[in-house]
Nucleic acid binder design. Sequence first.
DNA 1: AATTAGCACTCGATGTCGGTGAGTGCTAAC
DNA 2: GTTAGCACTCACCGACATCGAGTGCTAATT
Lengths: 366, 366
Amino acid sequence: MSLSERKMKILQAIINDYIATAEPVGSRTIAKKYNFGLSSATIRNEMSDLEEMGFIIQPHASAGRIPSDLGYRLYVDTLMQKAELQEREKNFLQGVVANNMNQIEYLMDETAKILSSLTNYTTIMSDPIVHSRTIKKIRFMALENNDVLVLVGTDGNMVKNHTMHLDAVPDDEELFRLSCIINDYLSGQSMEHVDERAINSLRAALPGWGQLINAVLKAVEKTTESLSPQFHLTGAKNMLAFPEFSDVEKAQKLIETLEEKDVMKNLMSVPPKEGQDVQIYIGNELGIDEMKDCSIITTHYKLSEHVTGTIGIVGPTRMNYSQVIAVLNGMVKNMEDTIAHLQQKNQPLRRQLTDSSRKKQTEQDS
Amino acid sequence: MSLSERKMKILQAIINDYIATAEPVGSRTIAKKYNFGLSSATIRNEMSDLEEMGFIIQPHASAGRIPSDLGYRLYVDTLMQKAELQEREKNFLQGVVANNMNQIEYLMDETAKILSSLTNYTTIMSDPIVHSRTIKKIRFMALENNDVLVLVGTDGNMVKNHTMHLDAVPDDEELFRLSCIINDYLSGQSMEHVDERAINSLRAALPGWGQLINAVLKAVEKTTESLSPQFHLTGAKNMLAFPEFSDVEKAQKLIETLEEKDVMKNLMSVPPKEGQDVQIYIGNELGIDEMKDCSIITTHYKLSEHVTGTIGIVGPTRMNYSQVIAVLNGMVKNMEDTIAHLQQKNQPLRRQLTDSSRKKQTEQDS
DNA sequence: AATTAGCACTCGATGTCGGTGAGTGCTAAC
DNA sequence: GTTAGCACTCACCGACATCGAGTGCTAATT
């Protein structure tokens, strides 16, 4: 049996209705609300077929039908029409992104909140992930108690800093001189694998400064390490509002799962597929039992050549896919537009990203 | 009518029982479980008195009694015996604090999680708040596109950095020279009110560098601004487990309130009272309707002369006050001990705090 | 005078039962 | 192929009875 045009339309009607009401939808509802010019009986027969094919499910004998994961999958892949951003949403997005561009951390936070409040679902956002791979410039700043702040400048105009402890710290003047020499040897090196020969030459060039060189290498290492992304959960409380999770225990388990970063990390780390703006995981496709009634839509944003991240929206399987996709795309486009705009004006934009990423990554020795 | 010894004991028994069970407790339960050598009838009379005095409440005519806010207040102020930390809790706290001391942000996060999981309540924690007030040292680091990273070192050995944009940026050598001159004029100045005369002398000493000086002043200003604390909510999901919040709507409203940072900010910002390790707000004492069934216990930690913060535990009014107080005090003591220990070994500890606070405060211009 | 036993009473919680209605599947007629 | 009709299913709801924990009061006891 193949999916006739009519079956498609009926399936779409069922899904639309169920997304709106969260109630199993019956043949009569479809016959009345959507003018197919068919009686409920005919629709009943079609629904029976659709159930046999696995697109819809009857929760119990005398109830209407609800879409199955497979049904949603079909919906998402072929039936769904892309929603336009509503004026209200558009304004909202633009305002937020434009006004807060000078404080990336705040922006990310705010963005997540806006997404949650526009969609009424839960947002998971990764911090901007920095893909810097080359050392550009090292500088020092002497602190008290024989500590030194080591600044590591990388390609993409980013800087990260780490506090290191030394047995003896030269004054700033001497440190500056040393940093210039160190730069001669390390500038342009890959952060992951600093060339052994470069290090050796450096050590030879600066005998007696082994500890300082070690501190620099350690700082570089830490800078590299610090590139693993952090995730933030926003609006988890929204899930409580859905009848799907009116069972408190279920809701609690879900939130627990969402907060367990490892679980989400894998999902969010999936690289974006060519030519797809979003990726959608429906119900059991997630492979997480506690989330079998949830879907996740993820997208990727690119703030610069070197800085990218992931945004995910979590909702019940009957979430409003087209709206979420529209909002997500709108948000990403807006962020990227704002950035392009700022860059034209030669604003120090990439630096902001730098700082934001550094925020989560600043580390030090002990 | 005054509170006889016996009434006290009965009240305490009621509160203990209610804390454990969340069920209204009746006279017979008290008579049987706690061996006062009194019949249920006698206890009934006493309970009747206690109700008249306002310490307990009857939720409906044929139910047992539950403690009122006033009852909890009396309990907290006079009846409660301080709980000892259990071995399990002690080990847990020590392990966590000791192992993660080298990464303050991670530590704070972990601390909050541990508190939540040990108590099964919700934790609100402020980032370490930095009370720096004096400029110590300014340094620069040139970046691409005519941007400069301005490093502001303050008393308490903290450093914050801000990216500023200039029309023209001198090379690092020149920047270093300039920073030394700038330091001569600004070092020791209050961050909030840089002396006008110092600025004027500086401008006079460095004619042609007005923009750079402005950038420095702006960076100082931003550093000052960035001292307002951030709050983090952990374990909000724990509240869902309590029968008090089995009503999903109620739970949602509560979480919403907790997430509204402004509400919490006020509470958490109350300065610690002399000679009190914790402050306790019971039910309506909070003055927040959504939280009338909640209590909050807050305490303050001091990581160094210049770095302090607040931890709060939110639970139902029938929360286990003595346990929470013990755990909170244990946690704070542990953190402070670990820090003292590390400082003895001359580890660069304050720097870690520095970095952690900077994490949340790094900003830049646009 | 304080305590206790006894008892009637209250009221939420729980369980049972029939009615209601939305929804189905099936059959026969169009 | 479509539809009208009908018997059947089953969640849901309100009514009603029952149960039991708990109370307040009174009278007896110490």
